[in-house]
Amino acid sequence: MVNNQGTEMISIDHVSFRYPDQDRYALSDVSFKVYNGEWLAIVGHNGSGKSTLAKLLNGLQYPESGTIQVDRLVLSEDTVWDIRKRVGMVFQNPDNQFVGTTVQDDVAFGLENQGIPQAIMEKRVHDALQRVRMSEFLNQEPHHLSGGQKQRVAIAGIIALQPKVIILDEATSMLDPIGRKEVIETIRQLKDELELSVISITHDLDEAAQADRIIVMNQGKVYREGTPMEIFQLESELTQLGLDIPFSIKMAKALEMKGFHFPTLYLTDKELVDALWTLHLNK
């Protein structure tokens, strides 16, 4: 768990935002921080403001009021390109992210745009693909890959640019369970190895359970903030907001009604299986 007294990587301070064609604010007086090396999940139903936050964090939109700082840079038209070098985004549909004819061409695309020398670019491409376990697909055409593999290549393209923050904007929502697991495991490994800050924008609380901290958005405001364990205690409130608690927690509660007794909530399937195995051994 990340210590919240650590180094601030992102600071959102009293940010409000309204789209030009709407009367209602998409974000209203939102404040929170993201710390270096932390995995923060931002969850909420459609229209809660979480996707607007992703656009603001990458400078695709600018706040109507309030300030956003990334690595001590205040977001503005003057700093947006420096901020984008620090923040990489992985989007929802992997098919919409490919621009190269091969995997290595696609990973190299962002580096070419930055004018990185050829020798350095080749090394970064190979290192990034190795980190996401896609080196063997170097010359593969992207459309032949599975959904999970495509997202891992998209992540490699971001990693090659050496950002300090990765934003996953509903990046696993179109994947099957295997692809979703591949992407989450890849991100967790990269976060730890490279000391990245990760922000998951998602409505999937199973994905959010992997995070160090969760922010629940509702109607453009921060509704709740806490550890996954703290947030998932709010089962009825989350349901009222249109969110669903992780399967492992629902299963644990169903098992408790059948006479099983667990000392705590279990946030992942593996934790629940380990707990059941421990109960079996202690019989």
Rank of each mutant, 00 (worst) to 15 (best):
V80G: 04
V125N: 05
V183R: 00
G49I: 09
I178Q: 14
A128V: 11
M229A: 15
P163Y: 07
P63Y: 15
N3L: 10
N113S: 05
I166T: 01
F262V: 07
D269W: 11
S135G: 08
P94S: 07
L279T: 11
I214K: 10
S65Q: 11
T67C: 08
I199E: 10
L168P: 02
S11E: 14
V222W: 14
P63W: 15
V99Q: 07
E8A: 00
K150D: 05
V183C: 04
F232D: 05
G259V: 06
H126K: 15
K55N: 12
Q210H: 12
L111N: 06
F260D: 12
A26E: 01
V2R: 09
G148H: 03
V222M: 05
N218H: 13
Q61P: 01
S135P: 04
S65L: 08
I215H: 06
I155S: 03
D29Y: 15
M174Y: 03
R213Y: 02
A41W: 00
V80R: 08
F91D: 09
M121T: 06
M121C: 11
S173Y: 03
V103I: 00
P228H: 11
L75Q: 13
D274V: 11
I155Q: 00
P63C: 14
L111P: 01
D95N: 12
G259P: 03
R18G: 09
G6W: 06
P142H: 00
V74E: 15
A208N: 10
H126E: 15
